[in-house]
Computed example of a mutant assay.
Amino acid sequence: MAMYMKFVQSLCILLAMMIAVTVGLLNGHFAMWFAQAAIMNSTSSRIRRIGGNGELSDIGEDELIEQQMMQWVEYMGTRNHSASQVANKVFMPFSFLVVDTNGGNGHFTSIQQAVDSLEVLSARRVIILINPGTYREKLKIPWNKPYITLQGTGATSLCVIEWDDTADKVASDGQRLGTFNTATVTIDAPYFVARNLTFKNTASPPTSGSRNKQASAVRVSGDASTFVGCQFLGSQDTLYDHKGRHFFQDCYIEGSVDFIFGDGLSLYRNSHLHAVSANYEALTAQSRSSPLEQSGFSFVNCKVTGSGLLYLGRAWGTFSRVVYAYTYMDNIIVPEGWNDWGDSNRERTVYYAEYKCYGPGANPQGRVAWSHQLSDQEAQPFLGLNFVDGYEWIGL
């Protein structure tokens, strides 16, 4: 009986701890979620709105969606939208490892060997210095190895990590890889940093009408990840910006179909986006599927060039969100600018916007009516590190 009572007592303590952690992680968002759920509670095109004093009134669905969009713009400026708890700035390196593919001047000959050698759940940053060379390996940074920096020691173009998986390849278990598992480099750990590296998927570009040829160079699923001076090379689905807060500075991203895609909350700054398309394709496919998700892509001081005809984005998710600011756009951008993915209903729920962009592809006159040209005030939340809570965790 005593043992049983101890077991029940331990179970209660564990349950209390789980509840406490859950409440902490929610970080005050219950109120916002509950309010939005109440607003969305409707069985017709007329929706019951809760006023500031608790009164109820009718509101049209279109008006509600527009209000929610503008509330989100204001909300993004409050810095209360962390995708996770406040990050800790841990930038001082604790140790260094060196990787050399030729084996002459390093501790390891592959990057994966160096990652595998690290202790799990460490809170100390380790910098892995990568000597120039082509590292043909499928690299994975697991969730339990945070605070890793991969640092190329030469020019970005000289430090290359490459592989050639596509979505239609069959894995050892007999199942197709699917897009999720095609990445040359997969980052599941938080607080990851990469500098001066080229990430490449060497699979051949898909031919017209081909299917299941998605081939990612990188999938980043870890929160608070930073990429500086890196190249991402591929064709279809080059950069899988899967989830979490991410920051890309001075990067070059090349591809053809949806070559930046996913559900991340990400800021791309001073980066070059280059299309290698032959037909009508899209640069981004942001997959936000719910008004409760805190995700979206912001491109600031970037450059869009290349070949083919390119949409700035298409609505993979019903509530997809993408903003371009101070960005040069070459004449490859189609006049409409944006694509609803064949679902006109998404035109009422996506948030696609531009602010002070320039170049032959940036003419606002031909843009679809459901996109936005932002005012100074509306654009402000998307322009700086606050968009990704960057002052909490980005250390450059």
Rank of each mutant, 00 (worst) to 15 (best):
Q294A: 14
N27V: 00
I39A: 03
D58Y: 11
M17C: 06
G154M: 02
F259D: 01
Q175D: 10
I260C: 08
D164G: 12
P142A: 01
M17P: 01
S44Q: 09
M92Y: 08
D343M: 06
F247L: 06
Q67F: 00
N331T: 09
R79S: 13
T198M: 13
H242W: 12
N181T: 05
S289R: 00
V304W: 12
V322H: 13
P190I: 05
A183F: 11
W338E: 03
A155Q: 09
N201K: 11
Y240D: 07
I332Y: 01
N53F: 00
Y328F: 09
V73G: 01
L11V: 04
E392M: 04
T198W: 13
R136M: 12
F180C: 07
V115R: 11
D250H: 13
T179P: 09
Y75E: 00
P360V: 09
I47T: 12
D173G: 14
T149M: 02
Y4R: 06
R124I: 12
S172Q: 12
A16L: 10
E63I: 00
T101N: 13
T198N: 13
M40P: 01
A217M: 10
A31V: 14
G209N: 10
T202K: 11
K145D: 15
G60N: 10
L267G: 06
H107I: 01
Y75W: 12
Y135Q: 13
S210K: 07
S277Y: 05
E293T: 14
D343I: 09
N41T: 03
Y268L: 14
H272L: 02
T327N: 06
S277E: 01
N181K: 14
S271I: 12
S344D: 04
P205S: 05
E74A: 05
R195T: 10
L239F: 15
M70N: 05
G28L: 10
H274S: 12
A38Y: 06
T156W: 09
F180M: 08
R48K: 13
R125T: 15
L64E: 05
I59D: 03
K213A: 01
I65A: 08
D100F: 00
L273V: 07
V86F: 15
F7R: 10
G209C: 15
S117D: 01
I59T: 14
L15C: 05
S110H: 08
P93N: 10
R125L: 15
G152P: 09
T182Q: 02
T202E: 09
I111P: 11
R125A: 10
V160D: 04
V193N: 03
G317Y: 08
T226P: 00
G24A: 08
T179A: 11
N279H: 07
E354Y: 05
P206H: 09
V21L: 07
T166G: 07
R79E: 15
C12G: 04
F387A: 08
D237E: 04
L374E: 12
S122Y: 13
M1N: 02
C357D: 09
Y352D: 08
I65G: 00
I128P: 00
G359W: 04
F261M: 04
E61C: 05
I253Y: 08
G384L: 06
G359I: 03
N88W: 13
I253W: 10
V300D: 09
I13F: 02
T156C: 12
I111A: 02
S307Y: 01
W143F: 15
N131Y: 00
V185D: 01
C302S: 15
W72F: 11
D223P: 10
S225N: 03
